[in-house]
């Protein structure tokens, strides 16, 4: 068993507060590659995990700018350059009329970027993940809270890390096979 390759070591907690406290402890001991699993979103957990800096907001902003500028230029090009028509004596570049479509294009491209960017960054859809090798992990979608320290962390050592996790008062600690 000890010879098998591990994905990480996982601890199980009864209450959300215990998990958040454990995450803080683990991070203060210098572990970097860890993740927590809970039945429902917990805002405080995100801060504790230090997951605040995501690339996604910047991608979405970029998508919005591209959509807005592109939407406006598309209309400008078609009404003022490609097919210049005199409509009701209005100028060819009737920008007030272009605003609704510009706005919609901004939202459209930003929203599509958000969905695709999210998928690209988190690797979904993912049919299987090593954490499911732990039988009790099914409880993560019911009433238990899990914390996993991954083997790719430079400080990881299967026995020592498991012992350290036991010191945080979990109900179970299990090795996660790849």
């Amino acid at each position: 068993m000890a010879q098998e390759k591990l994905y990480g070591v996982m601890a199980e907690f009864d209450r959300a507060e215990q998990l958040i406290e454990a995450v803080k402890q683990v991070r203060s001991h210098g572990f970097k590659k860890l993740d927590a699993y809970t039945p429902y979103p917990i805002e405080e957990l995100q801060h504790a995990l230090g997951h605040e800096k995501s690339l996604l907001p910047r991608l979405v902003l970029l998508g919005g700018i591209v959509g807005g500028v592109g939407g406006f230029l598309l209309q400008y090009w078609s009404s003022a350059i490609a097919y210049p028509l005199n409509i009701g004596g209005r100028p060819l570049n009737s920008w007030p009329a272009f605003i609704p479509v510009t706005f919609e294009c901004t939202i459209l491209v930003a929203a599509v970027t958000a969905v695709l960017g999210m998928l690209a960054l988190n690797g979904l859809p993912m049919p299987h993940h090593p954490v499911f090798n732990v039988r009790r992990f099914a409880l993560a979608s019911r009433n238990r809270y899990f914390l996993c320290i991954e083997a790719r962390d430079p400080k990881f050592d299967a026995a020592k890390t498991a012992a350290f996790l036991w010191s945080l008062n979990p109900t179970h600690v299990a090795e996660v096979e790849v």
Partner: peptide, 8 residues
């Protein structure tokens, strides 16, 4: 503004 501007 847009509605009134379009109606003119």
């Amino acid at each position: 503004f847009l509605i009134i501007w379009s109606g003119n």
